[in-house]
């Protein structure tokens, strides 16, 4: 692929609101974009450090709840001892706090769960997400539990002296989400190409070797978890202010699975993987909806996941890259089945 590809893709997506008249499709693109952001953050852990964190939705949800509560205000009694009253603040601060609190949780959970690996790690991360779900469900005084938290104000952006605007319209929200995706893309790209990123990839390849050459594995993993959790929290905050209502089901395991499917299908450990996977699975429901019910749609997702693991274990993006490079090198050669498994 050429260096220009990302720019061309960006220009294309920037033009979408100009010609897309279907507001519902635009709405779907916005929510898909938010999930892509979350999937990109998961990719940092799953793809670059090789840690299968299945509790990722916890950070997304924590970001959403933190941001929503910052913007809505709350009045909570802690342990029956003292009251914490918070007046509503501007939603932009919510976005900031949502990101920071999620990052902090990433630090704490990273510290705890990176003490174990493999199956233990996976189950610990799932448990953590379940605990956050049950806390949000039962701490009714703070989160309103199953009553949901409606009426979350949309984001207001602007600078002092230049004026402000509140993001009520879909088009405005679309550009904000697009901007965040671009930011995240650049951030991840720089991170991965830094010394830090090379160390991460090294320990993915061989953890004990990485340790023996003096890489402090846990420290690197925790830093990756902080960045990843912060990004997921930011995505969650954007989600809360766009959808304007959240409830504890935001923490459900299926949301993590959706992110995992996006990353795995697109190509874990590639910059473009979550974008491609996210677009496919974000827009598929819109297309499928007219033909099949939601159950069949999910059955197809599940089957696709199995097929990807069997046929394209590296995901779509690496497969296309290989095909592209090969056809460029040997233009006369028949394009074979995407050179599967060569990098496995």
């Amino acid at each position: 692929m050429t260096r220009l590809t990302p720019i061309i893709v960006l220009l294309f997506f920037a033009s979408v609101p100009w010609w897309l008249t279907d507001q519902y499709l635009l709405h779907t693109l916005i929510t898909t974009g938010i999930f892509i952001l979350a999937a990109m953050s998961l990719n940092l852990l799953l793809g670059y450090t090789g840690q299968l964190s299945l509790g990722h939705v916890a950070f997304f949800g924590i970001g959403a709840y933190t941001s929503a509560l910052t913007a809505l205000g709350f009045d909570v009694e802690l342990f029956g001892l003292f009251r914490v009253v918070h007046e509503p603040w501007p939603p932009v601060l919510g976005l900031l706090f949502g990101t920071l609190v999620a990052a902090l949780c990433g630090f704490v959970i990273g510290k705890l769960s990176f003490r174990v690996r493999g199956a233990y790690f996976v189950i610990v991360t799932i448990s953590f997400a379940e605990v956050t779900r049950l806390v949000s469900l039962n701490w009714v005084e703070l989160t309103q539990g199953p009553l949901a938290l409606p009426g979350i104000p949309p984001l207001t952006i602007g600078f002092p002296g230049l004026g402000y605007m509140t993001l009520w319209e879909k088009t405005e929200n679309y550009y904000v989400v697009l901007a965040f995706i671009v930011l995240a893309y650049i951030l991840i790209k720089r991170l991965v190409n830094s010394r830090f990123g090379r160390a991460m990839i090294a320990l993915k390849g061989n953890e004990s070797l990485a340790t023996s050459v003096g890489i402090d594995v846990t420290r690197y993993l925790v830093i990756a978890a902080i960045v990843s959790a912060g990004m997921a929290g930011c995505a969650g905050a954007l989600y809360a202010h766009y959808i304007q209502i959240i409830d504890p089901m935001i923490f459900m395991f299926l949301n993590t699975v959706t992110m995992v499917i996006m990353v795995i299908t697109g190509g874990k450990g590639t910059l473009a993987g979550p974008l491609v996977g996210g677009l496919i699975f974000g827009l598929a429901p819109v297309v499928l909806r007219s033909y099949v019910g939601p159950e069949i749609q999910w059955i197809l997702y599940g089957l696709l996941m199995i097929v990807v693991v069997f046929v394209l274990p590296q995901g779509i993006v690496p497969a296309i890259e290989q095909w592209f490079n090969r056809t460029k090198a040997e233009p006369l050669r028949e394009p074979s089945v995407a050179g599967k498994g060569e990098r496995a």
Partner: peptide, 11 residues
């Protein structure tokens, strides 16, 4: 689910 109910209304 409440969030889903809001999404359905939007749709």
């Amino acid at each position: 689910n409440p969030t889903e109910a809001a999404a359905v209304a939007e749709k």
